[in-house]
Simulated assay, not measured.
Amino acid sequence: MLLFLFWAGRLAAALLPAAFLSGPGPVSVTVAPTRVFLEERAGSHLNFDFAVQAGPDSLWLAKVEVSVYDQAGALVVRKFVDNNGFSPAVSSLSHRVFAPGQTALVFNPFHFFAPDVEVARLAYTFEFQDARRRKVTQQLDVRPERYQPRAALKIPVSGRLLVWDGHDENAHHRRLDYLHPVARQVGIRTNFMRYAHDFVVVNEKGETHSGEGRKNTDYPGFDQPVHAPAAGRVVAAYSAQPDNDNGQDYFDPRAMVGKDPLLLYGNYVVLDHGNGEFSLLGHLRQNSVVVKVGDQVRADQVVARLGSSGSSYFPHLHYELRTGATMNVEGLPAYFTRFELVRGSRRRTVRTGAVDSGDLLVQPRR
């Protein structure tokens, strides 16, 4: 998903659903989503946000600290960002100033821990200052859980691939600010793409396109088969949206997302794998979807062709594992089976593993 609308400018004030609203007090800090996963990929990766709501006074975020404890309750590591220094680390946070009654997201600054750090409990301390320079603190614990999909997923596109944008701390999927006024205006309430991937077919040199890259046909991935990542039932599908091409953009977010929120992805297929796991395949080529709602599909079955419809700059496949078929669900960590991870001139076969932004892969052809 190459979203080019919702992240422009600074974060604006917006109201959260009632579940997030705080009671009386100077500040409320809550975890969003409430269920936090550890994604294992050469260490522990965390992908969640903090919803911060100021009370009756304006607040400035001055420090965030985390203490990591193991299963035995022993301290493993402690980290913080604060206002110290000429270029303080706290300035890198997504939001620091909170007007009275304002709620905004702060992306978790401590998103990765090394393999030898056992992460059982994370104790966070938020430190704010009010207009009279008084210190205001808020503490909360996070107990993440490891998530392993029950569906045995395969990467839905074959060949040599680049994960153009995944869900690391800098990825736009990770930084979907669902409290942004425009996001809320079109009905976005959660980060459904929290663990998403953009798969781009590349040549042996890792190049995404030939020539100027303006036309869809400049991209080797355009019109390539898109396969079901696992067996499932089709619960949503759309195929009529024209592909953006040669400078022509057919995506109208206000009109289209208001009509069908999933049109954010242009043409799409959603599969229900059971056990609360759904796959969304987006930006498919116009009129290429060959399955319909209610169809049972097998793993590896061709369901469509790769395109550039919806919120897309160029041909690629947007894939996300999620908890439901509609817009406002949550993302789930995805682990793929039987692919090759490319590291320069070396390759390593991965039986089951996660991938993320910048990874070069080879998915054997079906």
Score class of each variant (00 low, 15 high):
Thr349Lys: 13
Phe128Val: 01
Ser288Val: 05
Val186Ser: 14
Leu21Pro: 01
Tyr319Phe: 15
Ala12Gly: 15
Ala152Arg: 14
Glu330Val: 01
Thr34Met: 07
Gly282Tyr: 00
Gly294Ala: 08
Leu341Phe: 12
Ala99Val: 03
Phe113Ile: 08
Gly73Val: 12
Ser22Thr: 13
Val235Gln: 11
Thr337Val: 09
Ala51Asp: 03
Ser28Gln: 04
Glu169His: 00
Leu341Val: 01
Glu204Cys: 03
Arg184His: 05
Leu360Trp: 09
Ser87Leu: 13
Val226Lys: 05
Val68Tyr: 05
Ser239Ala: 15
His95Thr: 14
Asp300Gln: 08
Ser312Val: 02
Tyr319Cys: 01
Leu38Pro: 00
Pro88Lys: 12
Thr103Cys: 14
Ser158Lys: 08
Tyr238Pro: 12
Val31Asn: 08
Asp356Lys: 07
Leu5Ala: 13
Pro149His: 09
Val157Ser: 02
Asp359Glu: 14
Asn246Trp: 09
Phe128Cys: 05
Gln363Cys: 04
Gly206Met: 01
Gly324Gln: 06
Asp260Arg: 15
Gly258Asn: 15
Val81Lys: 08
Tyr195Arg: 05
Gln224Ser: 14
His197Ser: 11
Phe86Gln: 14
Glu145Ile: 11
Lys205Ile: 02
Gln138Pro: 01
Gln148Ile: 14
Phe199Ala: 02
Asp82Pro: 09
Ala123Gly: 09
Asn244Met: 04
His273Cys: 06
Val270Glu: 05
Ala120Trp: 11
Leu179Ala: 06
Glu39Pro: 00
Val235Ala: 09
Ala240Thr: 14
Ala131Ile: 07
Arg366Gln: 11
Val106Ser: 01
Val117Lys: 15
Gly23Trp: 02
His180Val: 06
Tyr238Val: 09
Asp57Phe: 07
Gln363Tyr: 02
Val362Asn: 07
Arg10Tyr: 05
Gln286Trp: 09
His227Asn: 07
Asn287Ile: 00
Pro229Gly: 10
